[in-house]
């Protein structure tokens, strides 16, 4: 890996990453601008369905990407990728909130009775909602101030919730699709692949901790 100076990372690559991760949302907003007017748009003839799926896809992708940061950092033996982890995680939350907004506003148009019934009766929506509710505190406590206030141990513990949130999101996606479909399974496989080194490391530490 070529050495990247710290200030290039902070003031060059970070803003660039910020804009790059915003691009899907900008495309969505641009498409809706036309969809609202009934003009041809990238979202197609059922823009509500398309935007529900689009935002959900990206929330899931950023969830998995944030889980990929630490293994990647270990792989290249550099802590620098960690600089991007919070931003990626916050983008996961951002797209998850966009996902729910798309469903509540654009799709069901604030029909709260229907929405509440959906959350209770449709298991895949219950699971998805649980994932979002777990993700919100992670977003809120993502600041330096919160790390200080909570203490790094407790903060880390809380943020391990991401290991449960990602599979909930994958399950939500799998259940939402009809029949057995490949796409959610691919996301599930990526999640498992990202968890393997973590579980391995855990087992090693435990073996060391308990002398045989």
């Amino acid at each position: 890996m070529p050495k990247v100076p710290m200030n290039v990372l902070r003031f060059g690559l970070k803003p660039l990453a910020f804009v790059a991760m915003l691009l899907p949302f900008l495309w969505l907003a641009y498409s809706w601008y036309f969809a609202f007017q009934g003009l041809p748009n990238g979202l197609g003839v059922n823009p509500q369905e398309a935007s529900n799926r689009f935002t959900g896809d990206w929330a899931l992708r950023f969830l998995l990407l944030t889980l990929a940061v630490t293994p990647f950092s270990k792989l290249i033996k550099s802590p620098k990728p960690i600089l991007f982890r919070r931003m990626i995680g916050l983008y996961a939350l951002f797209y998850a909130v966009a996902h729910v907004t798309s469903y509540v506003w654009l799709d069901l148009y604030f029909a709260w009775g229907d929405i509440w019934a959906d959350i209770l009766k449709r298991t895949y929506i219950t699971v998805g909602m649980a994932a979002l509710l777990l993700l919100i505190p992670l977003g809120v406590t993502s600041t330096k101030g919160w790390i200080r206030r909570m203490g790094s141990r407790r903060w880390r513990k809380l943020h391990m919730a991401i290991y449960a949130i990602a599979p909930l999101a994958v399950i939500h996606f799998f259940m939402m699709r009809k029949g057995i479909q490949i796409e959610p399974l691919v996301y599930g496989a990526i999640y498992l692949a990202l968890m393997v080194p973590r579980v391995k490391a855990r087992l090693v530490t435990r073996r060391r901790a308990s002398p045989a």
Partner: peptide, 28 residues
């Protein structure tokens, strides 16, 4: 007159191109 005109058409290729960019997950 306010109903979406006939010109509305699907262009989900675009979505898939964008969506597939990160993980290359075009379904088929």
């Amino acid at each position: 007159s306010e109903v979406t005109p006939q010109s509305v058409y699907l262009n989900r290729r675009q979505i898939m191109t964008g969506a597939g960019a990160l993980f290359g997950l075009t379904a088929l």
